[in-house]
């Protein structure tokens, strides 16, 4: 059946996100919070994350361009961004955050810039992947909840 195929596809997408290290168990936590009161809770949170964190990204970008670089400020921005990223379980992004902060501590501006580029890459890759995932989930989602015996 097509529906079960889509289900399988969705499950595979989800699994891949974990297997490839894009997401960690925080994402599962979000899924568990999803209930009748908030049936699209995970998507809501992810959307909120991308809307909210774009500002942090911008802040960091601007701070990196400044010279001399204010590592304290950079670190504090990144700390905030890391906090946000931890909320959706964006594992790879978080990893780059940690790396970035290491470089801040060392005062390594080049390292920071390099890491930030990598971070942005991971950030948008995850965004695309999640968008695709939620799109598919939306397509089959309502049917799934309707057919689930409860």
């Amino acid at each position: 059946m097509e529906r079960s195929q889509m289900h399988r596809q969705l499950a595979n997408m989800r699994k891949a996100l974990f297997d490839q290290g894009f997401l960690d168990e925080q994402f599962v936590q979000l899924e568990e919070l999803q209930d009748d009161a908030n049936p699209n809770f995970v998507e809501e949170i992810v959307t909120l994350y991308y809307r909210d964190s774009s500002r942090s990204i911008l802040n960091i970008e601007q701070a990196l361009e400044r010279s001399p670089q204010d590592f304290t400020k950079l670190d504090s921005y990144m700390h905030q961004f890391k906090g946000s990223s931890s909320s959706i379980g964006a594992k790879k992004v978080k990893h780059e955050c940690t790396q970035f902060r290491e470089y801040c501590k060392e005062g390594n501006g080049e390292g920071c810039k390099r890491t930030f580029q990598q971070l942005q890459k991971e950030y948008s890759t995850l965004k695309k992947k999640l968008e695709a995932y939620f799109q598919l989930a939306r397509q089959i989602g309502p049917i799934e909840t309707a057919t689930r015996p409860k």
């Binding site: 979000l30 919070l33 908030n38 809770f41 809501e44 949170i45 909120l48 994350y49 909210d52 964190s53 905030q80 906090g83 946000s84 909320s87 959706i88």
Partner: peptide, 11 residues
């Protein structure tokens, strides 16, 4: 100040 966390914690 992190709105994402604020929402999650609320939930």
């Amino acid at each position: 100040d992190d709105l994402v966390w604020l929402r999650i914690l609320e939930k």
